[in-house]
Design a protein around this nucleic acid. Structure first.
Ligand SMILES: [Mn+2]
Ligand SMILES: [Mn+2]
Ligand SMILES: [Mn+2]
Ligand SMILES: [Mn+2]
Lengths: 252, 252
DNA sequence: AGTATGATTTAGGCACACCTAAAACTGCAA
DNA sequence: TTGCAGTTTTAGGTGTGCCTAAATCATACT
C-alpha cells in the first residue's frame, strides 16, 4: 500500500508510515508490553509471519525514519515517535474491535482479523467519531485498555496468568485476541473478562483454576461442559500457551 | 496491497484482485454507467489519476485475469467476471457511505474519500452485516442505487441533467459524489435528492433551473442565498461540469 | 493520397515489501 | 580459548504498481 495520505501534519515520519510500518510498530509495542522482555528480530518475524531478513531490512528503514532504536545484533526498541505511532494504531485497532462487537454483532473471536485490515484504512476523523459514538470506551472486548485521543494509556497492574503462583485469587483482565485457543477456552468454560478465579495449581506455565464469580451463569448453550480431563467440577486446566495469553490482577 | 485474503471462493480472478484492480474495475463500470459512452484508456487514466501507460499495462493484466475485454487501441469493456467484481465494489462503497452518513454523522461530501479506502479493507461478512444493520438500503446518500447481496441492480430511468431539454420538469435522482462542486451547489441552494425542479433554460450543457418541491425549506443556516448572478429568486444556474454530475428522472 | 495530431502502447526505471541462500556475528560450552 | 550453534545481517531476486520518455497507431484535414 502507498504511504498514508490522510490526516493533518504531525510527526512527518508517522505521516509517511505504510501499512507495513504501522504493523511493525504496533507489533513491537505489543510484544514489549505483553511480557516485558526485550524484543528480538526473530520474535518480531515470528509474530508478523515474515522472514528474519525482512525484519532486518525493515528495522533499518524504520531506524532511518526515527521510529526504532536498533544497533545491529541488539534488541529492538521503539523511539518516542515510534511509540506514538504504535499507540495510535493500538487505539484504532481496539476502538474498531469494540465497535464490531457492540454494533455489528461480531463475536470476540472474529474481530481481530477484521480490525487488522480496517485499522490501516480509517482516517483520524473516523477514529475520533467512532470514539465519541462508543462513549469513549476504556477497554476493548478482550479487556485491552484503549489509548485516549491524547494516546495516554493507563494499564492496570497485571501479571501473566502463566506466572501467577498457586493458591492466589485473581481477576481476569485481558486475553490476547490473537490466540484463538485462549478465547475459545474462556467461551467454553464461561469465564468472561472481569471474572474472578483461584489458581489451584501451576505446572511449568500451565495452570489449573477454579471460577469464583459469574463463572457458570448457565447462559443458553452447551450444558456445563466437562470435556477436559479435569476431575473437580468447574476446575479448568489451561496449557502454558493459553495461560501466557491471559493477564490477571491480584484480588484483595 | 497484497492480494485480497478474505471471503469464500467464487471466481478465482475476483479473489486475486488487488486494491488497484478493484479500483480499475469499479471505475470502468462507473464511467460506462454514468454517461453511456465507451470507456477509453485516457478517460480511465484521468479518472483514476494515473498515467496512460499505467492504464495500458493494467489493462493487459486485467485482460489476462479475464476481467476486461481489450484489443489494443480499442475501447475498454468489462467481462461478466469484471462486472461482478465492479458491482461487489460498488455495493461495498455505497453501503459504507450510507453507514457513515446515517451512523457516524458524516456529511455527504465527506464520505466518498473515506469509503474509497474502507471498501478495500472490509470482508464480505462485514458488508453483509452492515447491509442488515442498515435495513438493506436501496440507495446511498447521493441517490446512487446499491446492488443487493446477489449484486442485482435496478436503475431508475434517468438522464444526465446537462442533456435535459429546456422547460422540462424533473426529479433529482443522483449526484456524482466525486464532484464537490455539485454537492456544494445542492447544499447551497437546498436542493436535496428527490427534489423536483424545472429546467428553465440550457446553454451548451449549463442549465438554469427553478426548484419546485422542498426547494427552500429554510433550514436554520444561511439566508436564502442569491450569490449567483441569477436574477429571479430561486433560480439556480449550474455549470456544464456540475450539470454533468447529476442525473434526473422525468416527472409526469 | 499525405501528413499532422492526438491517443495509445512499448521501453526503461523506481519504490515497496517480501523471499531464499549465503555470509557474519555472538555467546556459551567443551 | 577455541569452536560451534543459533541468530542476524547481507546478497541477490520476485511481484505490484506506478512514472517519464520514446515509439507507434488511427484518423481527420488539407
Ligand atoms: Mn486485536
Ligand atoms: Mn494491521
Ligand atoms: Mn462515493
Ligand atoms: Mn477505491
Amino acid at each position: 500500500m502507498t504511504p498514508r495520505t490522510s490526516a493533518q501534519g504531525r510527526s512527518t515520519a508517522i505521516e509517511a508510515a505504510t501499512t507495513s510500518v504501522e504493523d511493525y510498530a504496533k507489533t513491537i509495542y505489543g510484544l514489549a508490553e505483553w511480557d516485558g522482555a526485550s524484543v528480538t528480530a526473530s520474535a518480531l518475524a515470528r509474530t508478523l509471519g515474515v522472514s528474519n531478513p525482512s525484519v532486518s531490512l525493515m528495522m533499518r528503514k524504520m531506524a532511518d525514519l526515527g521510529l526504532v532504536e536498533h544497533r545491529p545484533y541488539a534488541p529492538i526498541a521503539l523511539t518516542p515517535a515510534g511509540r506514538q505511532l504504535a499507540l495510535a494504531m493500538v487505539r484504532r485497532h481496539r476502538l474498531i474491535e469494540t465497535w464490531l462487537v457492540r454494533e455489528l454483532g461480531y463475536g470476540w473471536e472474529e474481530v481481530h482479523e477484521e480490525a487488522e485490515r480496517l485499522e490501516h484504512a480509517v482516517s483520524e476523523t473516523f477514529v475520533d467519531r467512532l470514539d465519541v459514538r462508543l462513549g469513549h470506551p476504556r477497554v476493548d472486548p478482550h479487556g485491552d485498555p484503549i489509548p485516549g485521543p491524547d494516546l495516554q494509556l493507563d494499564y492496570p497492574e497485571t501479571l501473566l496468568l502463566c506466572r501467577v503462583p498457586a493458591a492466589m485469587k485473581v481477576r481476569l483482565e485481558q486475553v490476547d485476541d490473537a490466540v484463538p485457543d485462549a478465547l475459545s477456552a474462556l467461551d467454553t468454560h464461561r469465564v468472561p473478562i472481569g471474572a474472578q478465579v483461584t489458581v489451584q495449581a501451576t505446572d511449568r506455565g500451565a495452570v489449573v483454576l477454579t471460577p469464583l464469580t459469574p463463572g457458570g451463569q448457565d447462559s443458553p448453550g452447551a450444558p456445563p461442559t466437562q470435556d477436559d480431563q479435569s476431575a473437580a467440577a468447574g476446575s479448568i486446566r489451561l496449557a502454558h500457551e493459553v495461560a501466557h495469553a491471559m493477564r490477571v490482577s491480584v484480588v484483595r
